[in-house]
Design a protein around this nucleic acid. Sequence first.
DNA 1: CCACTGACTACTT
DNA 2: CAAGTAGCCAGTG
Length: 110
Amino acid sequence: MLMPFTQKVLQVIRSIPEGKVLSYGRVAALAGNLRGARQVSRILHSMSGKHELPWYRVVNSKGKISLPPGRGYELQRALLESEGVAFSLSHTIDLNTCLWQPPDFMEWSG
DNA sequence: CCACTGACTACTT
DNA sequence: CAAGTAGCCAGTG
């Protein structure tokens, strides 16, 4: 069954394992839209509170938290660190070790 | 249908 | 590395 882009994004985020992160662009790509990074952010705005969603496992393509201090940055960083995600001195996650790489090239359409 | 919004991204200065 | 620019597109009213 084909789900709306929004629903696929939620499914992808829910499947991110502990200690791993994805960029907005990667989430969008797995959801079937290579250019949908901005939609992911908008979706998190409206859905992160109402769904049980590990929204904090989503960062930007540079491996940094996009939320400004006082608006969720500290919470997101604390949650990630509690799962073993390490931050560099420049507030950056090492994507070489923490970026989640899906097991297969399978589609998330179903 | 049109206008507007975004927790983005890649590219250029 | 920091700042600016252009492209991107699903939801919402």
